[in-house]
Computed example of a mutant assay.
Amino acid sequence: MNLTLTAKSNLIKSKAKEFGLDLCGIVKADFLEDEKENFLSWLDKGYHGEMGYMANNVEKRLDPRLLVENTKSIVVVGLNYFPKEQQKDPEAPVIAKYAYGKDYHFVLKDRLNQLFEYINTEIGEVSGRAFVDSAPVLEHAWAKKAGLGWIGKNSLLINRKMGSFLFLGELLLDMELEYENPTYADFCGGCNRCVRSCPTGAITEPYVVNGSKCISYYTIELKGDIPEEAKGKFENRVFGCDICQDVCPWNRMSKPHSVTDFEPNPDLLSMSKEDWQDMNAHKFGEIFRNSAVKRTKFKGIKRNLDFLKGE
């Protein structure tokens, strides 16, 4: 079947929808010249903290053709994870919404692999790889270039119809396709709610986030003790943080997802403040068996709970 580039791209986007992917755009693999200076400046300021991996493979981050040989096209997808229900006890420690259900790395990568197989069998023989937050890929930059949205002042991708509660993933392919040509419009305007609302001041200025001061960093990435200077600033967050998203006016557009795998363990939503404080390793394993929260292990969650208790 001899398809035009337009036909190939349209088939990929249509099939992505069938596989339950909410957004899909295709962009030419190239060097991220516009992002280079900002990324290197971010590293030079030490804003990656103990996330040493961010300073590794810088050239591959800026040029995906060095990451996967012969890459010509990047298919970027977005998957909504905004929940139908949230934690019920207003005094209970809060976890980020992305961790309510099954670990998104597996859920989204399964769908990307399905899409890859479809391309390989129905559109044309292709080589490539799927990535979900698992390789040196500047996913927000590629999502913007693919027309999925713009980068907000909290450094997250925002879509006009869906907001920012989105998982992003990429297929790096050695196939030529038709590419998006978005205008990259920024609809944040004069709004600075995310900047003003960040309790630790991690958003140092619009569009710049000091990752080493983010509550998500403190509660997930940081392996040692949480600095005393952060005391009283967590607003009861025990794993990750959604504050800059919760205050964003564009997230009024957020609609509940329809992904069964993202449905939370009912026990999680009903946990009281006391349930959290009394939680042991066995209960932790039961509730977060398939969740991204397992990244911290029980030891990490216990550290975070103790930190909240001492605020």
Rank of each mutant, 00 (worst) to 15 (best):
L3H: 09
K8S: 07
I12H: 05
I12A: 00
I12P: 01
K15G: 06
E18F: 07
F19D: 04
V27R: 01
D30W: 02
F31S: 10
F31P: 00
D34C: 04
K36S: 08
N38K: 14
N38V: 13
F39T: 03
G49M: 06
M54H: 11
N56S: 15
E59W: 07
K60C: 09
L62T: 04
K72F: 03
F82S: 00
P83I: 03
P83D: 07
K84L: 15
K84M: 09
E85P: 01
Q86F: 02
P90M: 05
E91M: 14
Y100V: 10
K102V: 12
K102N: 06
F106A: 09
V107Q: 10
L108N: 03
L108Q: 03
L108R: 00
L112A: 01
N113V: 05
L115G: 04
I119W: 12
I119H: 08
G124Y: 10
G124I: 01
E125K: 13
E125S: 15
S127H: 15
R129D: 03
F131Y: 15
F131W: 09
L138C: 07
A143H: 08
A143R: 07
G149D: 08
W150P: 10
W150E: 09
I151T: 12
N154L: 08
I158M: 08
N159W: 00
M162I: 10
L166G: 11
L168Y: 05
L168H: 00
G169S: 07
M175G: 05
E176Q: 14
L177V: 01
E180T: 09
F187P: 01
F187K: 10
R193D: 11
V195K: 05
S197F: 12
T204M: 13
Y207H: 13
N210T: 00
C214E: 05
Y218P: 02
I226H: 07
E229A: 14
K233P: 05
E235Y: 14
N236V: 06
F239A: 07
I243E: 03
I243P: 00
V247K: 06
R252L: 14
R252N: 14
S254C: 15
H257Y: 09
H257F: 01
S258R: 13
V259R: 05
T260L: 14
T260E: 15
F262D: 02
P264V: 03
P264G: 03
N265T: 03
D267C: 01
L269E: 07
S272H: 10
N280G: 15
N280C: 06
G285M: 04
E286C: 04
S291I: 08
F298R: 06
I301C: 02
L305C: 01
G310P: 00
E311T: 03
